[in-house]
């Protein structure tokens, strides 16, 4: 409802508004119910082991990589496009960062030690920006379909990574970076904090800024948005740059977690990011999707994965269940429509 009269006040207000934002729309409510059901079922099967600090923490360690990559995919999906080059971008940026860190860091101390790390990360983000600009330019200004464009950059960027490293792994990163992937702050994995640091501004940008509003409009009808006085080409360019930058952050987190970088890490994640986004309510045709939904979807996927891990099921069974969940969740409203429950 557009103007609820008086929001509840008092200590519960914050919690209520959080629940409200997560369950506000139909998709999110459905996902929230699914999540509760999954937790209950796994809790019953696995028992207390499922609720230990270690389990929860391990989930929190694993979620950010896929999470950040899914956000990178999501923003382009909302705009009616998609970005197949996110994984190769993440890897190339990680390689560049890892290269600088392993070549320049050893032997430095203090200011130089910190400085080179900052330089490394800056270079990674710079590379990501360039890739994003190339994607955005070709898509927005030349009018090539996003799938072809990003398929091309995906191949090219991966090719650069392989070419420069001859397919080898760069490893042996400084402890400070390893901490980013494997350490905790007050019990919260650092990677999770990084995820939060990119998610919150992204949620604000999509939900509360002119840029975000334009992104949704473009996703449904670019021409009409342009006729409303929005420089749609510039917005699309920015979308692909942001997507690339998110990929670079994901590259940093992956590099930190594996303590290494390689041109072909995590390639199987590519289609999983689309799966996660669509499960979270992002319309693959564009125009719709909220961060809260994608986060719920990521948590669901992670809960399944962790539970199966505890049950000693193969990770491939996890994959199959993820696929089944996607079909199931998207089919529910259509099945109900067929049965005449809603008209």
């Amino acid at each position: 409802m557009s103007n609820a009269p008086h929001p509840p006040r008092g200590p519960d207000a914050a919690l209520m508004s959080l629940i409200g934002s997560l369950t506000g729309d139909v998709t999110n409510r459905r996902l929230a119910i699914l999540l509760v059901a999954l937790v209950a079922v796994f809790g019953l099967i696995i028992g207390e082991g499922f609720f230990t600090k270690a389990t929860v923490q391990s989930m929190a360690f694993q979620l950010p990589e896929l999470g950040i990559l899914s956000l990178a995919m999501m923003i382009t999906l909302i705009s009616g496009g998609l970005n197949l080059s996110i994984i190769s971008t993440a890897n190339l940026c990680a390689l560049a960062m890892a290269y600088i860190m392993t070549k320049m860091l050893p032997g430095t101390e203090g200011f130089a030690f910190v400085g080179w790390q900052i330089v490394a990360i800056a270079v990674g983000l710079l590379i990501a920006s360039i890739i994003g600009l190339v994607n955005g330019f070709i898509i927005a200004y030349l009018g090539v379909s996003p799938i072809l464009t990003t398929l091309g950059t995906m191949t090219m960027v991966k090719g650069i990574g392989i070419g420069m490293t001859r397919g080898n792994v760069i490893s042996g990163l400084p402890d400070s970076i390893v901490f980013l992937g494997n350490g905790t702050v007050l019990g919260i994995p650092t990677a999770m904090l990084v995820f939060a640091v990119v998610t919150i501004p992204m949620a604000i940008a999509l939900g509360r800024t002119p840029f975000g509003a334009a992104t949704y409009m473009i996703g449904s009808n670019e021409k009409a948005t342009q006729f409303s006085g929005i420089d749609t080409k510039r917005v699309i360019l920015r979308i692909y740059v942001i997507s690339s930058l998110l990929a670079a952050v994901a590259g940093l987190v992956m590099m930190a977690r594996f303590n290494s970088a390689n041109a072909s890490y995590a390639e199987s994640y590519l289609l999983v990011t689309i799966l996660a986004a669509v499960l979270g309510g992002v319309d693959p045709m564009g125009g719709f999707g909220k961060i809260a939904g994608v986060i719920l979807s990521l948590v669901i996927l992670q809960v399944i994965s962790s539970a199966f891990n505890l049950l000693n099921f193969s990770q491939f069974l996890t994959l199959a269940i993820w696929g089944a969940i996607l079909v199931g969740v998207t089919a529910v409203p259509n099945i109900r429509k067929r049965l005449g429950l809603i008209d």
Partner: peptide
């Protein structure tokens, strides 16, 4: 799935890719 449940083909085929592949590797080890 695409026709009777009226789900877009991209969603269905991403899902079935995972289901088919996941089950294959799970069953065959």
């Amino acid at each position: 799935l695409i026709d009777r449940l009226n789900i877009s083909s991209i969603i269905v085929s991403i899902a079935t890719l995972n289901i088919f592949y996941g089950l294959l590797v799970f069953i065959t080890g």
